[in-house]
């Protein structure tokens, strides 16, 4: 049964792929075997993460990138992540609207995911979803998330190349993507660049990147970008090797090919500089930690452990034990 599913996914069967993603999304424990079996068949795809604030035109940009990649002959998958309502748990996933032209193209697979209340959860579901699509043979996989906070960034972090989209006229402009997020960008896009203030946004992003360079606060990913720029022509023409800042008008397709070129250049650069492995190592390390954290959290919720926790807490309050001793006891009980 599970072999059939794996074979179905490998042969590109839409239903097998789609059902498996649902089971991953639902946290179905029975899916672990399939994900495990798929793992050896992954690693070929180039995974591209695209994020930016609401209204920045990401979906339109993704639509145009898909078109451009299809012209080059690549198969493409898109995973579009949107927030669930914190009140009802429901969600309206509307990113497909701008991509429906590709719905009947056999070489394109589009899947919408909701965050279902916990971004941590979806970022892990996204990793496995990408694995399924990778094993199914899609050669470019685009993950699109809305938002610019740390948690959304975690979702795109598993990508080989990260594209940050901003847009003029959103009030405090790039302020929104400053904190802790700027430094993970490999390619910066200023969309809707026919609007007033586009050049200012470009200048601000460049300024911020330069500051990071001068202060030496440029974190590992951007440093990788630095190396990449030297290694790969076509990625960035910045004299310091900083990530490129590209103006686009996704609506008309203007600048989209430059974005694609930068993404491809980045990937080629990672390869040439031997940095792809380093990057994936970091990603996997991050994933491993979160898988383990998840398992520990689940364990803590197990009935016997919960009641033991209660009992131990009472003993600590009654001064029959100290907290460290109680924790040792709990860890032992968890095995």
């Amino acid at each position: 049964m599970s072999d059939d599913i794996v074979a179905g996914i490998r042969s590109g069967d839409v239903r097998a792929i789609a059902r498996t993603i649902s089971r991953i999304d639902n946290g179905d424990p029975g899916i672990v075997g399939i994900v495990k079996a798929l793992h050896v068949h992954t690693g070929e795809a180039h995974v591209i993460g695209i994020t930016g604030p609401p209204g920045s035109g990401k979906s339109t940009l993704v639509d145009k990138l898909v078109r451009s990649y299809r012209r080059d002959g690549f198969t493409v998958a898109v995973v579009a992540v949107d927030p669930s309502s914190p009140f009802t748990g429901g969600a309206i996933l509307g990113d497909r609207i701008r991509m429906q032209a590709h719905a009947t193209d056999e070489g394109v697979f589009i899947r919408s995911l909701a965050t279902r209340g916990h971004l941590g959860g979806v970022s892990r579901a996204t990793i496995d979803t990408v694995r399924v699509l990778d094993a199914a043979g899609y050669r470019r996989i685009i993950i699109e998330t809305v938002g610019v906070g740390q948690s959304e960034v975690d979702i795109v972090r598993l990508a080989d190349t990260i594209v940050l989209v901003s847009v003029p006229g959103l009030g405090d402009d790039i302020q929104a993507i400053k904190a802790g997020v700027m430094e993970i960008g490999d390619v910066f896009v200023v969309n809707k660049s026919d609007r007033d203030g586009a050049d200012r946004v470009v200048r601000e992003i460049k300024g911020m990147l330069e500051t990071a360079l001068v202060n030496g606060t440029t974190p590992p990913f951007a440093l990788a970008g630095h190396g990449v720029a030297k290694a790969a022509a076509g990625y960035s023409d910045d004299p310091h090797g900083l990530p490129p800042v590209i103006k686009t008008i996704a609506e008309t397709g203007e600048g989209v090919d430059s974005v694609k070129k930068a993404i491809e250049g980045h990937r080629a650069g990672l390869d040439q500089a031997g940095l792809l492995r380093a990057r994936r190592l970091a990603n996997v390390e991050h994933e491993l930690r979160s898988v383990v954290t998840d398992r520990l959290t689940a364990l803590l919720e197990r009935d016997d452990i919960r009641s033991r926790t209660k009992m131990l807490s009472a003993e600590v309050v009654d001064r029959a034990r100290d907290p460290h001793d109680a924790a040792d006891d709990l860890m032992a009980a968890m095995g």
Binding site: T60, I92, G94, I97, R98, E251, T252
Partner: peptide, 10 residues
């Protein structure tokens, strides 16, 4: 001229 793409806000 190209074609208009619907903007849906829900």
């Amino acid at each position: 001229y190209g074609e208009y793409q619907q903007k849906v806000i829900l």
